[in-house]
């Protein structure tokens, strides 16, 4: 069954591989006998990927729509469930992205301390004990193993956060 997302996904693939293919063409140049230059190999890969994406896009467009065939997607419960799932993915992905950004500003320890409960909450964890105890335990373990034992030089953060991080590493 066709989904809108599938059509969009393969359309993006076609656009991406087409754009990169054009970039690869620009790499072509004259070489010695037998020398195939920098462009040939990526061109082969990109042309093949472009062709396959186009075929898959065509297949996705031609398939009958999901709602029209099954009718399940139109049920309120199924729609609510799908929306809830999407929310969980978006929220947890956003948490992870913010964590990666925050590491540079807050430092590894503080960012990790905030990330764990936020991520667990985004996944649906509501037990207060877990949300409080898990960050403390996990951050302590991670700090001990990676910062103290393996001495990985994680970012310390900026300003007052850097001063806090320096207490530990």
């Amino acid at each position: 069954m066709k989904t809108k997302g599938e059509v969009v996904f393969f359309a993006v693939c076609v656009a991406f591989f087409g754009f990169m293919g054009a970039q690869a063409v620009a790499l072509m140049g004259e070489g010695r006998a037998g020398e195939i230059g920098s462009a040939l190999w990526p061109l082969i890969a990109l042309c093949a990927a472009l062709g396959l994406s186009a075929v898959l896009l065509f297949q996705a467009v031609r398939r009958p729509a999901a709602a029209a065939v099954g009718g399940e997607a139109s049920e309120p419960d199924a729609r609510d469930e799908a929306r809830r799932r999407r929310k969980a993915v978006v929220a947890s992905t956003a948490c992870f992205f913010l964590y990666l950004v925050a590491i540079s500003f807050l430092g590894f320890i503080l960012a990790t301390l905030f990330f764990i409960p936020a991520f667990a909450f985004a996944l649906g964890e509501r037990r207060t004990k877990v949300l409080v105890a898990a960050p403390l335990i996990l951050t302590t373990v991670m700090t001990a193993v990676f910062i103290k034992f393996l001495t990985i030089p994680f970012p310390k953060g900026v300003g007052v956060f850097a001063a806090f991080s320096r207490l530990f590493y």
Binding site: F115, I116, A134, L138, M142, P153
Partner: peptide, 22 residues
């Protein structure tokens, strides 16, 4: 709880990616 467990896995992923070239 899987929610906490997966957070720990993501932190390990971050460590893995950062640790190659810092």
């Amino acid at each position: 709880p899987y929610s906490v467990f997966s957070a720990a896995i993501l932190i390990l992923c971050v460590v893995g990616a950062f640790g190659i070239n810092n």
